[in-house]
Simulated scan of single mutants.
Amino acid sequence: MGETGERDRWTRATEIIGVFLLSVTAVLTAWCGFQSSKWGGEMSIAFSQASSARIQAANAEGEARSARTFDLTIYAAYVQAVGDGNEELADYIRTRFTPEFAVAYEAWVADGEVENGPFVREEYVPEGAVEAEELNARADEKFAQALENNQRGDNYSLLTVLFALVLFLTAMSQREIAPWVARSLLGFAIVVMTVGAVIMATFPIRI
C-alpha cells in the first residue's frame, strides 16, 4: 500500500510538472513566433530602405556623370579657345565653369598645372557625387541591417523547434510508461526548456 501510494504521488507530481511545462512552453513558443514575425517585418523594411537608397544613389550618380560631362565639354572648349589664342572667348568660357569645377581648376593652376588636368584634383567633386556616396553607404548599412534582422528572426524560429522538443518530451512523460522513464523524460524536458529560455533571454526583442 505504501509503495502504491508513493507511486501515485510520483504520478501526480509528474502530471503537475508536465502541465506546468506544457503551459510555459506554449507561451514561450508563441513569444518566439511573435518575435520571429516582428523581426521578419523589420527585415523587409530594411531591405526596402536599402533598395530605395540604392535607387536614389543611382540617380545621384547619373547626375554626377552629367555634371562631369558638362564640365568636360566646357573645359574642352576653353582649351580650344586658349589654343587658338582667343583670350576673349577663353575668358568668357571660364566664367561659365561650374562652381565645383572652378574650385578644382583654380587649385590646379595655383599648383603649377602639374597634374593631367583639373579633373584629377581631389577638389573636383561634381554635383551629386557626395550625395551618391552617402546614399550608397546608407544602402549598404540598411542591407547589412536587413541581414541581421533576418538572422534574428531565424534564431527565434530555431527556438520554436527546441521548444517543440520540450512539448514532445513532456507529452511522452505523461504516457503509461515506467516511472523512471517518465521522470527521465520530464527531467530532460526541463533541462531543454531551461536552456532554451536562457538562450532566448540573450536575444533582442521587438515590440
Rank of each mutant, 00 (worst) to 15 (best):
E3K: 10
A13F: 04
I16L: 13
G18Y: 00
S23H: 11
S23P: 14
T25K: 10
V27N: 14
V27D: 12
L28K: 13
A30Y: 11
W31E: 08
C32Y: 01
S37G: 10
S37Q: 06
K38H: 04
W39H: 07
G41A: 15
G41N: 14
S44I: 13
I45E: 09
A46E: 03
F47I: 13
A53S: 09
A53P: 00
A53G: 07
T69P: 00
L72N: 04
T73C: 04
I74Y: 10
A76H: 02
A81T: 06
D84F: 03
N86Y: 08
N86R: 02
E87L: 11
L89T: 14
L89Y: 06
Y92M: 13
I93H: 10
F97H: 07
P99K: 11
F101N: 00
A102P: 03
W108M: 07
W108P: 02
V109L: 10
D111M: 10
G117F: 12
F119D: 02
V120S: 09
E122P: 08
E123I: 01
E123K: 03
E123G: 14
Y124A: 02
A129Y: 02
A129V: 05
L135E: 03
L135A: 02
N136G: 06
R138H: 07
R138T: 01
D140S: 13
D140H: 02
K142V: 02
A146C: 09
A146D: 03
N150W: 06
Q151N: 14
L159F: 10
T160C: 15
A164M: 12
A164E: 09
T170Y: 03
S173Y: 01
I177Y: 15
W180V: 08
V181I: 09
R183L: 11
R183I: 02
S184R: 04
L186A: 05
V191A: 14
M193W: 06
T194F: 15
T194V: 07
T194Q: 06
V195A: 05
G196A: 05
P204W: 04
